[in-house]
Computed example of a mutant assay.
Amino acid sequence: MKDDAERERAHAIFDPIAEEYLTRDGVDIGAMFGSEGLRIRGKVFAFVGFAGGLVVKIPATRADEVEAAGTGHRMEMRGRPAKEWVVVPTSSPEAWAPLMAEAFAFVDEITP
C-alpha cells in the first residue's frame, strides 16, 4: 500500500514532465523494469520506479555527483548498484525536470 501511494505521488510529478517529451520526435513510452518509461528511439531514459521515485539514466560521473549531493541514490539491480541509473525520491521534486533533461540528452547522444 505504501508503494502504491508513493508511485501515485511520483506519477503526479513525472507525468506532466513526460507529456512535454512525448511531443518530441523519436520519444514514446515503453516497458522498463516492470514499469513504463520514456524512451528515445527505443532506449529508456526515465521512468517511475516500482517503489516510486524517478529513475534516470545519466553518465556515471554525473550519477556520482547526484549521489554525493544526497539528491538521489544508485538504483540496485540484483543487489548491486547500477553504474548509470539513479533513483530520485519524491521528496526532491525540484530535481526531476533537470535530471530528466540530462537523461534525455545523454541517452539521445548514445543511441543511434
Rank of each mutant, 00 (worst) to 15 (best):
V87K: 12
P112L: 08
T90K: 03
Y21W: 10
F47Q: 02
W85A: 07
M32T: 07
A63D: 11
I29Y: 02
A31C: 01
V88S: 07
A82Q: 10
A60C: 03
K2L: 15
A12G: 02
T61V: 11
K57F: 03
P81D: 05
A105V: 05
L22R: 08
I13G: 04
G30D: 10
G49E: 03
A18P: 08
E94Y: 09
P98F: 05
H73L: 14
R7P: 11
P98G: 05
E8S: 12
I40S: 00
E102Q: 11
F50K: 15
R78S: 11
H73I: 14
T71H: 10
M100S: 04
E8Y: 09
V87A: 09
V87N: 07
K57D: 00
A60M: 09
P16E: 07
E8F: 13
W96L: 06
A10L: 04
V44D: 02
V56T: 06
R39N: 07
I58M: 05
A68L: 10
A18N: 09
V44E: 02
A101W: 00
G72V: 10
E94S: 14
P93S: 10
E102A: 12
L54Q: 05
A68S: 09
K43T: 07
T23V: 11
A68G: 10
A69M: 07
A68T: 11
G49K: 03
V66Q: 05
V27C: 06
I29N: 07
A95H: 08
T61L: 12
E109G: 07
F50I: 14
R24M: 04
M32G: 04
I17L: 05
D15G: 10
I17H: 01
A105H: 03
V48N: 01
H73T: 15
A18F: 08
G34P: 12
T71G: 05
V48R: 01
A103Y: 00
G70S: 09
A51G: 06
A60R: 10
G49R: 05
V107P: 04
A68P: 01
E8K: 13
G26H: 12
I40G: 00
V44T: 13
G34E: 09
E94A: 15
H73F: 14
A103C: 07
W96Y: 12
A5W: 08
A18K: 08
V27A: 08
E20H: 05
A18H: 06
